[in-house]
């Protein structure tokens, strides 16, 4: 097929597609609505999860530790980690 004919067919297909409402909706309207919604939605979920994670006090199991009183003191700090003595 010659380049000229490819151009003729391309032009016809373009006109045909642009006049098809279903194609237009799926090509333009859906991405215009869905992409921002998905982006904002994912961002909100991520921020919420990061916030929850930063407020959570992790539990740490301590085995022995008598020889490291400074570390134990730091772990028992209420703003730091919550140590469980075994």
């Amino acid at each position: 097929m010659s380049l000229r004919n490819i151009g003729i067919v391309y032009r016809k297909e373009l006109i045909d597609s642009l006049r098809d409402q279903r194609t237009l909706i799926s090509m333009i309207a859906v991405p215009l609505l869905l992409v921002p919604l998905l982006t904002i939605g994912l961002l909100v979920v991520m921020v919420r999860q990061v916030g929850e994670a930063s407020e959570e006090v992790p539990k740490v199991m301590i085995l022995g530790g008598e020889d490291s009183p400074n570390v134990l003191a730091e772990l028992e700090n209420p703003k730091g980690l919550f140590g469980v003595k075994v």
Partner: peptide, 17 residues
């Protein structure tokens, strides 16, 4: 026929081809 083309466009298309 290509339903979304007009009668004129349809004949033009084949004429050009």
């Amino acid at each position: 026929l290509y339903g979304r083309l007009s009668a004129r466009e349809m004949v033009e298309y084949f004429g050009r081809l």
